[in-house]
């Protein structure tokens, strides 16, 4: 069913960017290919040119940098991230979130860069990465740039990448000492399903119980992952008791814009967003 295309296999990121510049809208980048192959099979995307990155070895790998950041190459597979001791040392939450994406076969093929460029709001990596302050490393015809992940994802299947730009990796700055993080997803159907709602939270709580830092992100309940800033603001600087947590979770649910589907009605999903945000907040604050 897939329409035919011309395949390009650049060896470097620069070559890939040049190919994208040359072919413009007629070209589509393939990283792991799990989503792109399906979308081409189903006729939703019919590119004349596919630029496959599988030979661009500079986009592979996971490393720690001198300032204590974690850098994950765009072509790192979900499985590599799940099993990387560097990732686990930086954020066990991240390793565990990646370990629960779909099935092992998908995790072996799907890549971090491909996942982010796909901009599917129901995917697990974006909320988990937003909670730990991930930045996206971008190269293109212009100067290289680094943007917060929440600024990359602008609409369903839509990113803020300029024409010819390529995600080359993700940088996660060092987390403050004592950061507690959790990723929860609600899977009422099967373990490998897309989440009905997912919530990631990362927090630093002072010795006297005051919330010093907090980031909360929700997946699958909007056109993009949602950074629950109102919920964060409702708790920062306070001592989080049960009442404050419930009120903040209510703020998070108000920020959602779910669509009804086989996983539930919009109202049900909004309720579940509240319930799972409460649970995530309890896990990192209590």
């Amino acid at each position: 069913m897939t329409s035919t295309y011309d395949l390009h296999m650049p060896a470097t990121a620069r070559e890939a960017i040049d190919l994208l510049a040359r072919h413009g809208d007629d070209a589509h980048v393939m990283a792991g290919g799990t989503s792109l192959v399906l979308m081409m099979q189903q006729g939703l995307i019919r590119p004349a040119h596919v630029v496959s990155l599988h030979k661009v070895s500079e986009l592979r790998g996971i490393r720690s940098t001198a300032d204590g950041s974690l850098e994950i190459g765009a072509l790192a597979t979900h499985r590599e991230i799940e099993r990387s001791p560097l990732v686990r040392a930086h954020s066990a939450m991240l390793a565990e979130a990646f370990a629960r994406i779909a099935t092992v076969r998908i995790r072996e093929q799907a890549t971090l860069g491909g996942n982010l460029a796909h901009a599917d709001p129901a995917q697990d990596p974006p909320p988990a990465l937003i909670a730990v302050g991930a930045l996206v490393l971008i190269q293109g015809p212009g100067p290289a740039r680094e943007i917060p992940l929440e600024d990359l994802l602008v609409d369903i299947f839509t990113t803020s990448l300029e024409p010819g730009e390529l995600i080359v990796g993700v940088r996660i700055p060092p987390l403050a000492a004592g950061t507690r993080a959790v990723y929860l997803k609600f899977l009422p159907r099967t373990e490998d399903d897309y989440a009905t709602v997912s919530v990631a939270a990362a927090a630093v709580v002072a010795g006297d119980g005051t919330v010093r830092q907090l980031r909360v992100a929700l997946g699958a309940v909007g056109a993009t992952p949602i950074r629950a800033r109102a919920a964060e603001a409702a708790l920062l600087g306070l001592k989080a008791d049960e009442k404050a947590i419930k009120a903040a979770a209510e703020r998070a649910a108000e920020a959602t814009d779910p669509i009804a589907d086989g996983r539930g009605s919009a109202g049900y999903k909004r309720s579940m967003a509240r319930v799972f945000t409460e649970r995530a907040l309890r896990a990192v604050l209590a």
Binding site: Q42, L44, A122, I156, F157, I259, A260, D261
Partner: peptide
């Protein structure tokens, strides 16, 4: 039809 499987969230968001 087949568009329903993968394209459904797209169509729903877009329809809105």
């Amino acid at each position: 039809g087949r568009i329903g499987e993968f394209g459904q969230p797209i169509i729903k968001r877009k329809a809105d």
